[in-house]
Design a protein around this nucleic acid. Structure first.
Length: 300
DNA sequence: AAATCGTGGAG
DNA sequence: TCTCCAAGATT
C-alpha cells in the first residue's frame, strides 16, 4: 500500500467568530466602502500585493494603485512599464506583470468582470490556490477553504498539535474544508478569522497563547507546546544572490526614463559582472526588462 | 517537485 | 547586527 497522508480529523469546530468580530483589525479591504468602490477587482489587487508581502507594507500602496486603475479594463490598457513602475519596491515584481496579465485575461475572457468561480480564477495569471479562493470568498461570499501561511500555522497548532506546519499540500485545503461552518457567510468569517488569529495572536515567533480564544482546545498547548520541528526549507541567503542583483537592476530601470539607460551604465561596479549580466538576461526573459539598441528599459 | 523569485520590518 | 519571514505562484 502506498504511503498516504494522515487522514483529516473530522467533526471538529473552532470557535473563532466571536473573537474575530471583537478583534479584527480595520484593514482597508475589509471596509464596506472599499467593496462598494472597487468590488472584486479591489480584492484581487490587494491579494496580489499581499502575496509574500506584509500587510503593513501593502496598506499605504493600495490606494494609489486603485485610484490609477480602478477596473480591470483600466489596468489592461496600461503598459507593463507603467505597471512595474507603479509597483515600485513592493518586491517580487513579476507579480506586477502577472496582475497586469490577469487584468488583460479578465477583459478578454470575462468581459472585464473578475470571475467568481474558483476554476476561472485559477486560470488567471499569478493566481493560485490561495488567491483564487480568497477572491471567491472575500469578494463574492462563496464557501471555500482559504488557506494561507497564517491559517496553516493555526491549524498545525490547534488541530495537529505541531509547532510548525508540515510542508504545504492539498491536505491543508481538506482540513480547512472540514472545519468550515455550513453557511456561506459564517465560513467567510471563519476563513478570515483563522488568518487573523495567525497574524496577530498565533504568530510564528512568540505566540500569545494567554489571550488566544482557542487556548482551551489547542492540541499544541495541551501537549505542552512541544517543538515538533520546521519542515520548511530555510530561505536562501539574499546577500550576494541573483535576486539581489535583479532587484538592483530593476531599481536602475525604474529610476530611468522611458528610454531606459545604456547597457554599459547598468551597475558598472557590481562585484560580479557575470552575475549582473545573468540578472539582466533573466529579467528580459521574465518580461521585466527590454533591450534595444544597446539600451535597457522597462518593458513597453 | 525543489528551487526560485524582492524588500523591509520585527525581534 | 543579524536572522527570520511575510494574506504565494510558477516552473
Amino acid at each position: 500500500m502506498l504511503p498516504t497522508a494522515s487522514p483529516v480529523p473530522q467533526g471538529r469546530t473552532l470557535p473563532l467568530a466571536d473573537w474575530y468580530r471583537a478583534n479584527a483589525r480595520d484593514l482597508p479591504w475589509r471596509r464596506a466602502a472599499f467593496h462598494e468602490q472597487f468590488g472584486a477587482w479591489g480584492v484581487l489587487v490587494s491579494e496580489f500585493m499581499l502575496q509574500q508581502t506584509q500587510v503593513s507594507r501593502v496598506i499605504p500602496r493600495l490606494d494609489a494603485w486603485l485610484e490609477r486603475w480602478p477596473t480591470p479594463t483600466a489596468m489592461a490598457a496600461a503598459t507593463p512599464a507603467e505597471v512595474v513602475q507603479q509597483w515600485a519596491n513592493l518586491g517580487y515584481p513579476r507579480r506586477a506583470l502577472w496582475l497586469h496579465r490577469a487584468a488583460v485575461e479578465v477583459v478578454e475572457r470575462h468581459g472585464g468582470v473578475v470571475p467568481r468561480d474558483v476554476e476561472a480564477l485559477l486560470a488567471l495569471s499569478g493566481i493560485g490556490d490561495y488567491t483564487a479562493r480568497a477572491v471567491s470568498v472575500f469578494a463574492y461570499g462563496d464557501r471555500h477553504p482559504v488557506v494561507d501561511t497564517n491559517t496553516r500555522r493555526v491549524l498545525a497548532r490547534a488541530v495537529e498539535g505541531r509547532s510548525h506546519p508540515a510542508s504545504p499540500s492539498r491536505r491543508d485545503l481538506l482540513l480547512m474544508e472540514s472545519l468550515l461552518p455550513s453557511s456561506d457567510a459564517e465560513s467567510a468569517v471563519f476563513n478570515a478569522a483563522a488568518m487573523e488569529l495567525g497574524a496577530t495572536v498565533c504568530t510564528a515567533r512568540s505566540p500569545q497563547c494567554e489571550i488566544c480564544p482557542l487556548l482551551g482546545e489547542c492540541a499544541w498547548v495541551a501537549d505542552g507546546r512541544p517543538d515538533t520541528g520546521d519542515a520548511r526549507r530555510r530561505q536562501a541567503a539574499f546577500e550576494g544572490s541573483d535576486r539581489q542583483a535583479r532587484g538592483a537592476v530593476l531599481r536602475v530601470l525604474r529610476g530611468a526614463g522611458e528610454d531606459g539607460v545604456a547597457l554599459e551604465t547598468v551597475l558598472p561596479d557590481w562585484p560580479d559582472p557575470v552575475q549582473r549580466d545573468r540578472a539582466i538576461d533573466s529579467l528580459i526573459a521574465d518580461g521585466l526588462a527590454e533591450a534595444a539598441e544597446g539600451s535597457l528599459s522597462l518593458p513597453r
